[in-house]
Amino acid sequence: MNIEITNLRFTYPTGLEALKGINLTINSGEQVAIVGQNGAGKTTLVRHFNGLLKPTSGTIFIGEWETTKFSVAKLASRVGYVFQNPDDQLFSRDVLTEVTFGPRNLGYEKAKIEELVQRALSLTELTDKTDTNPYDLSPTWRKMIALASIIAMDTPIVIFDEPTTGQDAVNVARIANVIAELRNEGKTVITITHDIDFCAENFERVVALSNGQVLLDGPAREVLGQEKVLAQTYVDPPQLTRLGKRLGLKETVTRQEEFLRAIE
């Protein structure tokens, strides 16, 4: 299911123009990272994908649905959105009920709901915690519950808003694993992140936003190599990329394997 954004502009009621003409196409099954300085418009942009915000002008199509013509609850069947702070959405007594909430809202059959919930719980390694109250678990596990509760909705498009903020290495690896699994299932994953190493290792395409406009858009290696342009939106290329540049490597490297191959 493609996302088609044409001339998207958005102004907040306070008069702040957050998006100034965005044109972007995200194809079905792509893994896209959105980077850029604070206030560049990243969250404002992705909140348009599931209709939480409606464009001031311009259009967004999710498949053949124009977002202005559908309610958020309806769009939730196509776009899953994991919020930054899990505590803004967890309310159930136990993990199982929490994760079942989304798919039940979407009106799937009972058997399917059970299957989706079990799959989401095993992906996020929560299977042995189903009876626990979410607030008895650590913040890192609450983050995984928030992830599971969206994955269980089985939407073709999944959005993560800064999934790795405040997470330890083990949990970042878990999140990377979830994203890889979603890719194998052919889902579109869009992630807002400030964690540029995480971005380099897990995403094929990177979109850099600056001041409400698309600054760079392309394969991760091309975008992350442009140190000077990225500096405009206060993004540093990954350490390996910068080291590769200093060593005078011909190609831009972003991941360990590439780096090792290049210096051989």
């Binding site: 958020v72 609850a73 919020f83 909705m153």
Partner: peptide
């Protein structure tokens, strides 16, 4: 402000508030 965020998060999970 907090309530606005929570409403947005739950609507994103298919909660019908409309």
């Amino acid at each position: 402000a907090k309530a606005q965020t929570i409403i947005a998060a739950q609507r994103s999970r298919g909660l019908d508030t409309e």
